[in-house]
């Protein structure tokens, strides 16, 4: 059996601790702050997925703060004319060994269905 160094960021388990925003429009571009366990800024991606669909969140290496937080933008959902909310999974994925974190939930909401929030009033 191989022995892993649990503290090394190249092999350590990936973990998402917290997101500041957990819903946003299906067009994407929602700015999200993620707090996570240690990651390498040049060896990490954030994957949004549902069934066969997956998309990468957008961020630069400078958006990775001290290995423990990432500020990124949600990718657009695969479909733009959804009529109901869609729950998808968000995971960290290490590029080098394709290891995933456990997923957390993000909800895409339809755009412009109720721009003036008439239904809420």
């Amino acid at each position: 059996n191989p022995i892993y160094d649990k503290k090394a960021t190249t092999t350590a388990e990936l973990k998402i601790n917290r997101l500041n925003v957990v819903r946003g429009p299906c067009i994407g571009k929602t700015e999200i702050y993620m707090l996570c366990d240690k990651v390498q800024k040049d060896d990490i991606e954030i994957i949004f997925s549902l069934d066969d669909w997956e998309a990468k969140a957008e961020f630069a290496q400078t958006d990775v703060h001290r290995q423990i937080a990432i500020v990124f933008k949600s990718p657009p959902y695969q479909e733009q004319d959804i009529s109901e909310e869609v729950d998808v999974s968000v995971c960290l994925r290490r590029i080098s060994d394709r290891m995933y974190s456990d997923p957390v939930k993000f909800t895409y909401v339809p755009r412009n269905t109720d721009p003036y929030e008439v239904n809420r009033k």
């Binding site: 601790n17 917290r18 500041n20 707090l35 366990d37 240690k38 703060h65 001290r66 423990i68 937080a69």
Partner: peptide, 8 residues
């Protein structure tokens, strides 16, 4: 306080 580098 998250890992000494973030605060909610």
């Amino acid at each position: 306080v998250h890992k000494q580098y973030a605060i909610v």
